[in-house]
Each structure stands twice: as structure tokens, then as C-alpha cells.
Amino acid sequence: MAFPIYSINLTMIKINNLSKKFGHLTAVENISFQVKPGEVLGFLGPNGAGKSTTMKMITGFLTPSAGEIELCGFNVNDKPIEAKQRIGYLPEGAPSYGEMTPLQYLEFIAQVRQLSGQKKIERNKEVIERLHLDKVLNQSIDTLSKGFKRRVGLAQAILHDPEVLILDEPTDGLDPNQKFEVRELIKSISPEKVIVISTHILGEVDAICSRAIIIADGKILADDTPDGLRSKSSSDKMDDIFREITSGKIS
């Protein structure tokens, strides 16, 4: 028998037959997928495809109508606190408490995440450096630009160095330089983590994702590496491939 260190399949996110209905509207219909450590999964799809709804279910904000979600071995609905401790989440639009300063806000998150002492100081210093927040630390979040608000939201998500990172449109509203920096940040933390991002920007998939799931009308239309997707289409451009898949020309 083999030594069992690597024989355990370290799947961090396991989703089985997940559905979400809002009244008569089916936002997510029977989707299943798994994500392993080191993977950066890009969630692509037209507006209203069910990307955000799926992410909200993974993070425990929405309760699924049917199906199971397991995070690092914890069922999100049965063990919500344990699951939430392992996630960093940037919700769509990066909501936060506007009357606080980034410094106060990070202190609050650190307390919730039970960081203390040297560890807290180190993590604080690192996220402030990585997201270039040092100049705005003592300004209330309400008065910050959209780009800074997004970066404060990202800082909040990665502060506790989570095993699973769920980012809903992390680069939305950032200028090209900031986009580049956020992508570099995601790349630098990806090797040992699971990262799921949703995006409209298809170039981002090539830049950072090791795998892409295309969803529309709540269903998974494609689940492949960026190169795998490319091989299905006559075109080499991600935009064309996306359009072909979501309009039903190829599957």
C-alpha cells in the first residue's frame, strides 16, 4: 500500500447538484463541480447567469434550494461557522462600513477572524503593503475612490490568509495599473490556495485562471482550461469563444 500522504484527494470546494430558485425563477440549476488547491477558477457568464448567486451560496450568504456545498470538509449549511472561517470573500461591489477608516475596518476584521498579537501585526502590514493602502489608512472609506474601496475589500478578504478565496469581480472599477496589480496579487497567493473569481473581462482568464467555467441561465456550459476552451473554437480570441459558447453555437 502506498504511503497515504498524497493519496487523499485534497478537494477544497465540492459542489453537488446545486440549485437556487427565487420564486418561479431558477437562478442556478443543478450545477456540480470541484476545485482543488492551487487552482484559480474563473467564473464567466453573461449578466444574470448565476455567477454571483453561486458565489453567495458557496460563502453561506444564500441558502441553496437543493444540493450540497462542502468547503475544506465542512458542509456550508450544517457547519457554517467552520466553513466561513476558511473563506475570504469579496462580495460584488465590495460593500464595507463607510464611516470607518481602512485601519479601523481591518482591526474589526482581525478581531472577527481572531487574529491577535504578532500575527495580527504581520498580516495587517502585509495586506496594507500589497494593496497600497498606506496613504488612505486614516480616511473614512466613504470618501475613498472606487479603486481604493475595492482594494479595502480585497484586503479584508485576504487578511486572515484564508484557504479559500472567493472574489466577485475583483478588478471591476480599477484602472489598468490597479488591475494588473490585483492580478499579480492573485497569482502570488494562488499556489497553495483555492481561488474562485468571477469576471466580465475575458483577458483576465488568460492572465490568471488555470480553469474556466462558463455559465449561462444557471447552467454550466463549459468547464475547461483556457487552452481547452480555445481548442473547441475556430477562433483564438477568448471573446469569440465566449460568445460562441453562450449563444449555443458550440458546447
Binding site: 453567495k56 460563502t59 453561506g60 450568504f61 457554517p80 461557522i81 467552520e82 466561513k84 472561517q85 473563506i87 470573500y89 462580495p91 461591489g93 460593500p95 464595507s96 462600513y97 463607510g98 476584521i109 472577527v112 477572524r113 479584508q156
Partner: peptide
Amino acid sequence: KTGSIELLMTLPIS
């Protein structure tokens, strides 16, 4: 209204 409830409810707090 501000959406911060999504943040609050996804933190490990009941």
C-alpha cells in the same frame, strides 16, 4: 441597503 449585510453574514459570526 448598503450591502454590508453580505459581508457581515459571511464572516464567521452567527
